[in-house]
Write a protein that binds this DNA or RNA. Sequence first.
DNA 1: ACCGTATGATTGTCCGACAATCAGGCCTAT
DNA 2: ATAGGCCTGATTGTCGGACAATCATACGGT
Lengths: 236, 236
Amino acid sequence: MTQTNSLSEAWVAEPMGRVAAPIREQVIAALRQAILDFQLKPGQRLVERELIEQLGVSRTTIREALRELASEGLVTVVPQRGAMVSAPSLDEAMDLYEIRAALESLVVKHFVERASDDEVRALAATVEELAQVSETTDDVRAILAAKDKFYGVLIPGARSAALQQLIDGIRARVQMLRATSLSNPGRPVEVVAELRAVAEAIARRDADSASELCAAHVRKAAMTALHALQETDADE
Amino acid sequence: MTQTNSLSEAWVAEPMGRVAAPIREQVIAALRQAILDFQLKPGQRLVERELIEQLGVSRTTIREALRELASEGLVTVVPQRGAMVSAPSLDEAMDLYEIRAALESLVVKHFVERASDDEVRALAATVEELAQVSETTDDVRAILAAKDKFYGVLIPGARSAALQQLIDGIRARVQMLRATSLSNPGRPVEVVAELRAVAEAIARRDADSASELCAAHVRKAAMTALHALQETDADE
DNA sequence: ACCGTATGATTGTCCGACAATCAGGCCTAT
DNA sequence: ATAGGCCTGATTGTCGGACAATCATACGGT
């Protein structure tokens, strides 16, 4: 299997073979994953020639991939100096969380208005699945994956491509902070309760309550994450 | 820049004073302008080789520029088929307007919290300037320019780079609809009244009222634009 | 008239080249 | 010794050409 995607393995020294999907997409996916997994650390420079050697693709492809990631906000390019992994400041992180709250409120409102009963049930199911996971493990990664399933039902159910695109971008940019937030003991339990409340409001087709509960959830996650970050900064 | 390319005759004549933005940026700006001015019409295919000839730059540059514009939503690329000028459907346009309402609400809230008194006064001044313009001319282009000045004060005053980036993207994507909306007789007068109300609420530092008024303004603009568009579709 | 194929157009990707720019060390003059 | 300027290496920005893969369409045989 020459073209196993480097997702689960170390991202280094894994030349990618030619599979059906455009190579550029694979490069983008690999770099995105590496950034979100902290294999590429915030602030680290991304030198084109190094990426060429490690990924085994041409400079053209690398450059297009880097620009794509830049438009997603995951990397920052400074003219004449190249790209580096974005390192959002506290202020920027807070901004991102507020934007996320506003957009996810809108998503929830649209979900209430547009989603089928099946989708509503599926959403409730993901919450219960999340509850199961958060009771049986402390693995932040597993909990994050379960939460992503929730959003995997919620966001498409809102039937808005633009909204989906924007939220995906924002969520990627705060991914690191999400992990920090959920590492806080007791936080997963609260998360389950908050999401359950959102799902119930949705089941009642109560758009206003649901979107407000969702916004409150995001804001609370923000507080937790930022608080933890400030302590980290103070320690080091 | 090493060779004689002719993005515009003007800057070729410039001896050497300007350090010059990267050519890619000039290409992006030129294409963006052409799209927003309808020189490139929605749905029109953007063939790389034609752009090369018309702009006098290499394919590398063109491709990077197209991907940038794609990430802004102004062009749509379908794999193996190339890029075309985006042509948002009615549903998509409505989505964009709702997102814009949510984000601009947030901008106004932040403006109230963060902008200086000088900025508040400058904002009010742009509204009065807009009132002047809309009374003395029917030129939609001039009115749009005046409105852009309003946003030119409002958005930076919110002190959020992420928010600014997102709103710029959304606003570009509905630019065509904005023109349609303002062409509606009587609409400019209403716009002035609505923005005046927003500015006054901001002057009172009443964040909740201001953001709600702003959202209402965007929603009303959406109604006007979409209504006009539906008629257009019905006529033709 | 139907269907498969030849053909052309266009994109995706690679390669190599060179100027422009930036960072840092080195050298000189005061 | 220090300030300032120069040289050099590393890296990006842009160019041109090349080729396979893929899509669109016209063509030809049946």
